[in-house]
């Protein structure tokens, strides 16, 4: 029981962080049709900016300032880079963001050094929120959940209650119509891109000190975010939400279960040779690559993803 509850909490926390990352990516994809390869790089920039700001002003201002700064960077990159690549089609756009992720990582190394920086959790959030049986649940994890739920609500309100949100939503299903209605689509693109990367940066601000702020952090989450978006269904925010939680929880439980491939095969009546390398694999060992297996399976059996409306 303890194990189930603790794993569930861990899974949800991790899933919510994934959602913060993937929501921005989904927004950008639905609006602009481009998968932002550099999305995780903005997550990293968020963490580094927050570290820099927190050194000068403290953590709380950083929580606000860092995402705004990264959002501004995003706006500038869209305006002076991505927009030019847009002329040449989606492949060029994708490759632009691919190159951008290279460059951002190198710039981060140059500015903040090649090793991890000392970005700490603020004192006020350091400690235990509650103890579940014998496991501590840290305050900071509660805070992460709070921020991500807050972001989810704010995003929901923005998309359903404001004019801009309606336009963005309309673009989810009918991008061409929105343009035909005379909206300044390039400007919306620019704002959505800025907003999307700011969301990633917010995830970076609260994830950077919970985990580690170092130049490899973007590469570490980069691909998993794509998995979430693809599993959830390209362009579906709700799908991204469900997929994030699902992947977070499945991965967490898979680590905890002591099941080997031999056991699973036995369930289907297949006897594996105990000496084979395959037979010795456990679910725990596979846990971190389960999402990729999951993605491939989804694409084979339900190409639209869990909740995707459009084919691609």
């Amino acid at each position: 029981m303890e194990f189930v509850l603790v794993s569930l909490l861990n899974g949800i926390t991790y899933g919510m962080l994934l959602f913060m990352l993937s929501s921005g990516l989904t927004l950008i994809f639905s609006m602009m049709g481009v998968l932002n390869f550099a999305h995780a790089s903005f997550y990293m920039l968020g963490a580094y900016f927050a570290y820099q700001v927190s050194v000068i002003l403290g953590f709380w201002p950083a929580l606000l300032v860092a995402p705004l700064l990264v959002g501004l960077c995003g706006v500038l990159i869209e305006r002076y880079g991505l927009r030019n690549a847009h002329k040449y089609g989606h492949v060029a756009e994708l490759l632009f963001t691919f190159g951008l992720s290279f460059l951002i990582e190198e710039i981060v190394r140059l500015v903040w050094g090649k090793a991890a920086v000392d970005y700490r959790i603020p004192e006020a959030l350091n400690g235990t929120l509650f103890t579940l049986f014998s496991s501590n649940f840290p305050i900071y994890k509660g805070f992460m959940m709070l921020v991500s739920v807050g972001m989810l609500l704010a995003l929901y309100a923005l998309l359903t209650r404001t004019r801009t949100g309606l336009i963005v939503q309309a673009a989810l299903s009918r991008p061409d119509m929105v343009e035909a209605l005379g909206h300044n689509v390039p400007r919306i693109f620019m704002l959505v891109f800025g907003g999307g990367v700011a969301l990633a940066a917010l995830a970076g601000v609260i994830g950077g000190n919970a985990f580690i702020t170092e130049p490899g952090m973007a590469a570490a989450v980069g691909t998993i975010v794509f998995v979430v978006v693809v599993v959830g269904g390209l362009g579906s925010l709700a799908g991204a939400f469900v997929a994030s939680l699902l992947i977070g929880i499945v991965q967490t439980f898979a680590v905890g279960l002591n099941v080997s491939i031999t056991d699973i095969a036995a369930l289907f009546g297949v006897e594996l040779q105990a000496s084979g390398a395959m037979a010795r694999l456990t679910l725990t060992q596979l846990a971190p690559i389960l999402p990729y297996l999951f993605m491939v399976a989804i694409l084979v059996f339900r190409p639209r993803g869990l909740m995707g409306a459009r084919e691609s």
């Binding site: 994809f29 694409l299 691609s312």
Partner: peptide, 29 residues
């Protein structure tokens, strides 16, 4: 598996398969 789709979806599947094979390669010495 991967050529069921074209465009962005193909790119993502190829990425996923790449990650899968790369991870698996370290697991089977």
């Amino acid at each position: 598996v991967s050529t069921k789709r074209a465009g962005t979806a193909f790119a993502m599947i190829s990425l996923g398969i790449g990650e899968l094979v790369a991870s698996a390669s370290l697991m089977f010495p």
